[in-house]
Design a protein around this nucleic acid. Sequence first.
DNA 1: GTATTATATGAGAATAATTCATGACGGATA
DNA 2: TATCCGTCATGAATTATTCTCATATAATAC
Lengths: 294, 294
Amino acid sequence: MQIGQKRIPLKSLHSFEAAGRHLSMGQAALELSVTQSAISHQVRHLEDQLGVKLFDRSKKQISLTPEGARLFAVVGKALEDIKLGAMSLDEETFAGKFTIAAPPAFTNLWLVPRVGELLDRFPDLELHFESMPRRIPSVLPEADLVVQFGKHNWPRKRIAPLAVTDYKPVCSPRLLSRLGKLSPGMLKDHVLIHDDDGEAWSQWLSVVGKEQLQPKRHMYVATAIDALELARLGVGFAMNDQIITSYWLGTGELIAPFRQGLSAYDSYYIITAHEGQMSNIVGEFETWLRQKIA
Amino acid sequence: MQIGQKRIPLKSLHSFEAAGRHLSMGQAALELSVTQSAISHQVRHLEDQLGVKLFDRSKKQISLTPEGARLFAVVGKALEDIKLGAMSLDEETFAGKFTIAAPPAFTNLWLVPRVGELLDRFPDLELHFESMPRRIPSVLPEADLVVQFGKHNWPRKRIAPLAVTDYKPVCSPRLLSRLGKLSPGMLKDHVLIHDDDGEAWSQWLSVVGKEQLQPKRHMYVATAIDALELARLGVGFAMNDQIITSYWLGTGELIAPFRQGLSAYDSYYIITAHEGQMSNIVGEFETWLRQKIA
DNA sequence: GTATTATATGAGAATAATTCATGACGGATA
DNA sequence: TATCCGTCATGAATTATTCTCATATAATAC
């Protein structure tokens, strides 16, 4: 496929997006203050460039093809991002405010339990916690300091390793006590809980030589918080790193039944502005983070 | 500010992005196979439209202004998304998959505890849970059924009320036992925990006639999960609806010390495809949801 | 079948992007 | 400080793209 070699005609995306939203070229034309003909030409041009039919025109009303629908979702979001980004360019930022963005599970299971300390350590700050999804989003959240999982570089930002992970399966002790034998093979009778697209489990299974294993069932959640909660309730086996699981391992509500882990699966990184442009608070905060996580 | 009224000249973004990446218009020109002049014109055009200087040209090498840097981050990733989206247009989607998107706290504190039932009730589905942030995002997550907080309409989707909320402050019983008197005024000595921009608390305070109240401190988190966790740990008072708080109220780890609530603050809604295009499973799932939540 | 509504199409007009030729400016060099 | 070099800016001319206009075509409803 040669798509992607070519540059996408960005301008036609405006027409495509409007047409997709209204499911009507006429409406789209109205919104953009051009003629229906212009929309038609633009959409056609885009289809030609991509080599994919985007709309079905067989009926009276157009409808998105599956390909069109997927592109529409992506483009809609991207355009919205751009618009919002462009609109907020000249906004000022309040000084006493400090925002840290981190993966939800990191926030919930690592940061939140340490908030007491944090409030004491930085008594003058108004603290804001934001989400930094594990599936790395298209736009870096606006934050003074971002903790992200995975070595993804952002233009004009500094990235620094924070901590390496040790991925291991975890489950409820109750689930385990029912079973005598303890081998990876037994997972075939259980539910595997994923908070990614299956990558972590698949890697782990191949490390223990069971890449062909078919579990009783798969279940996919959006955050590690949910994955661990499901595991804690005895639904099945989750797979996560120690920074996050240690909270429940500590209380005894989860156990890690297998010794084998994925020690080099991926790491946590810190994203900040570059040295020069970085405020002192950010540096202090980073130091605090590193001390506590060590 | 009138930015945003105008449509952004998408085509110039290509030039801007390349120039920002190389920090050189000449390089950018080379990459895009045009002349340096073309890049210069385009960047200038973009700056004019946005009314913001994007580059500093005082030195020998151009550099992004703070505004330029922010736009660059947004645009860079948005363009990448579009490119990737366009390239992967002809991939297939798997049928036995059922995705439900809901606010993180709803997923974690309402859905997850009922997953056992859910797995029994729908034994043949591969369940996926996605996030639907409370601050309603620009693009509806791709899901068969979305639970959202607030009556926000989406083009070509069906919206139906699911449940009304009853917002009340909650805190740890430990926090409360230290205090004798129980009046909204005492909140001035405590930390207020927000999972929005302060709206819920501000409304509640005005209902109890304390709109002027200055608490000891404010603290902002991205999800209700974190807010409730902080409350549970005794950090301060969170403010949430009963569907979500009932989990911890049930275990006794949180209490709702004030009788006064915000009963009409906002509601949960279900977003699905319209009747015609909706699969049976979605209908069954919705029925299950409604029965359980009643 | 006819009216109606919606999209497609081709040619020309309008607009926008690009080039070309040149100017301007900062930094390096001697 | 004069000169050179590399980089970006600018205006007019050129080229390419986008849009409109006037119809054509197709599906639907009556």
